[in-house]
Design a protein around this nucleic acid. Structure first.
Lengths: 199, 199
DNA sequence: GTCTATAACGTGATAGAC
DNA sequence: GTCTATCACGTTATAGAC
């Protein structure tokens, strides 16, 4: 079930979907980059959609070790964890010359009529990301005003990330990303200031 | 140059790109829905990319009358104009059963290697939108703290809109859109409160 | 499980009469 | 400018030997 070939296929598909999008990636692209032959691929995956499912499952299962743990190395403060994660996407943009944004976000906008498996997997990936941020906000506990809706704020942080990436990619200019994150930082600062006043 | 046929082709392409995306829309789709024959289409447009250019030019040239004027009917307050515009996208999501997000945002994420014409047109469409919001913020003048970077805030509002749409579409749930707009509203309220303190 | 060969289809695009 | 017919190609997917 998890042969080396299968893994290579999934990782290659992941890369290509990330760089070019799902529709613009052909099976032939995947075959040539992964050095696998058509028969092998179709042995593991009935069709292209199933390949996408496998990729989304990989993201879902690896969010901790492939994303969060890497971004949070040497970062302890829960608020700074949030900005460290955003900074990871910033680095991805720069390193890839604006080809790599957020893999889930790209797919979420590209797939207009997803089959239910795919829609659910996109959603669970977003939900897990939001959940991780919400945990940070919970840990930041008293620094936020009483009654702050931490779930809504976590969703808003995802929103900021996705929107900032979209604009930076289009402009091919990181400064718009930085300004967006700056406004988010300003908002969180206003919240922490407000929390201090009360105490 | 602007025959009825040409217009019908452009409007049909606009609709289909909006609903299904650029790559997932075939020339055949456009021909059948617009009731035009292949020869006519290729008479006006050398290729599919040129059709996208025409669509993006239509958005660029019509932002005032097709978007802003409609959203701002009976809305005078500059801050409320911002939320009225966001509410227009909310309505679009609901009316289309989450198929219609932001046409520019969708294309911006879908087109991974745009030719320069297309990238420039995506960018100018974003810039015009941001500029309209910035004008609102300028009009709201003294209600914001001195030294507020209104351009950055306008970019951030676009970010909020795009991210909120992305999440609402994926979840097929308008409440996440509303919560995102709610956090944006809270941020702007905090800014106006802060401006009042000073005076 | 892996390989080669190829089928079946949809795609963007063209030719040429009218 | 519009129409029909069709090409050349790339696509997903399959067949069948090994």
């Amino acid at each position: 079930m998890n042969s080396a070939t299968r893994q290579r296929i999934v990782m290659t598909a992941l890369e290509l979907f990330y760089e070019k999008g799902f529709n613009s990636t052909s099976i032939a692209d995947i075959l040539s980059r992964s050095q696998v032959h058509s028969g092998s691929l179709y042995h593991f995956f009935p069709g292209k959609q199933d390949l996408l499912v496998a990729v989304l499952e990989f993201y879902r299962d690896g969010i901790r070790e492939n994303l969060l743990d890497i971004a949070w190395v040497n970062v302890d403060d829960p608020i700074e964890k949030i900005f460290a994660l955003l900074n990871g996407y910033r680095t991805g943009l720069l390193m890839s010359d604006y080809r790599h944004g957020c893999p889930i976000g790209n797919l979420a906008l590209e797939i207009s009529e997803p089959d239910p498996r795919i829609r659910d997997l996109l959603q669970i990936n977003f939900t897990n990301w939001i959940g991780a941020i919400e945990q940070c906000l919970d840990q930041a506990g008293g620094r936020l005003p009483q009654g702050t809706d931490k779930r809504a704020l976590a969703e808003f942080i995802l929103t900021t990330m996705e929107g900032a990436i979209m604009q930076a990619r289009t402009a091919q200019d990181i400064s718009v990303f930085d300004r967006n994150v700056g406004v988010l930082r300003a908002h969180i600062d206003l919240l922490t200031e407000k929390a201090k006043e009360r105490s």
